[in-house]
Write a protein that binds this DNA or RNA. Structure first.
Lengths: 182, 182
DNA sequence: GTCTATAATTTGATAGAC
DNA sequence: GTCTATCAAATTATAGAC
């Protein structure tokens, strides 16, 4: 079914999202797959290459999910609810935060290309949210609201993960959605 | 002026907030102070002990700053503005995120006592915010709003740090404050 | 309180056999 | 594609001299 490269990306993503980039090692991933760390280097020459591949696959998956989840959305509230559902799934499925929530926090300690990919993910998220908001809003207010929405989702995952309570995420998001009108 | 233990806590806090717990080493801290890593172990037997001391000092400082900044606050909006000002100072001063924003993200990979201290910081923040909100609000709505406020602040620092733009933080917080009425 | 010296482990990475 | 073998460097941590 899934070849080695996919299983590597799965293991690396899970590790990074749970414990961070620097806490994930080639040997640990190799052990999880039942291979040797030198075999991991066969697929990804450097750790940075692996990190980049994980971020790129993750970003593609999130935006695919966003498109699917928002396919029947008409109002801004519909779109934002779809967005929140996509992020909530991540938390519910694995008790881990957004990949880019983790890497964004560690940003200053990451290789440049990796930090840039994370920043691009955030920017694309803000753009997606801004496009979903009522186009009657002034552009500045729209951008501010979009930034607010993304920040709340990211922060809610971090706080919920620390307090080990999905309800914390749900509380924050429920209140967030009350502040958006159609 | 500042003795070795304070300088160690300063260096460790700065390192953790910028790059994360696992990216900070005893040798690096020792080099920064011009001493040897074994001397760091004299003050903190294990890395976990150092991490705990950093979190405890940080939490005390934040709540002291909150008390001071909110001393003249009367309305809920005043209190929340004071809270946002305290968090913004952190970003402005060092371009780094909240210590517990970083450690909260890394939570699953931290020693238990450290993760617990971070969770306690978050819970105390939520309680402080909830107490500042209008007591006329239903308790559940108040807790949800307080969680939302903390999540937005934490997430805004992460996203702003990644996008290297303080304006991102200001945008998110400005929009957040428009959603709170006296 | 700071040092030297060192141990035990882990890490990212490479060379080359099969 | 996976392995063995290996490397150089870094990490947390300890023992004991000064």
């Amino acid at each position: 079914m899934s070849d080695t490269i996919d299983r590597l990306l799965d293991a690396a993503e899970a590790g990074i999202r749970l414990r961070g980039y620097h806490a994930v090692s080639f040997r640990e991933l190799a052990d999880e797959l039942g291979i040797k760390s030198s075999s991991v280097h066969y697929y990804f020459r450097q750790k940075e290459d692996l990190g980049l591949a994980v971020v790129e696959r993750y970003a593609a998956r999130v935006f695919t999910a966003l498109t699917a989840e928002a396919s029947n959305a008409e109002t801004p509230v519909d779109h934002l609810a779809a967005l929140c559902a996509v992020y909530r799934q991540a938390l519910k499925g694995s008790d881990s935060i957004c990949l880019c929530g983790m890497l964004g926090a560690e940003s200053a300690g990451l290789p440049d290309r990796l930090a840039a990919a994370v920043a691009a993910f955030f920017q694309a998220n803000i753009d997606w949210i801004a496009a979903a908001l009522p186009q009657t809003m002034p552009a500045k207010a729209r951008r501010a609201k979009a930034t607010h929405v993304l920040a709340t989702l990211q922060g809610a995952m971090t706080v919920a993960g620390s307090l080990k309570s999905h309800k914390v995420f749900d509380d924050a998001v429920r209140d967030l959605l009350t502040t958006v009108q159609d």
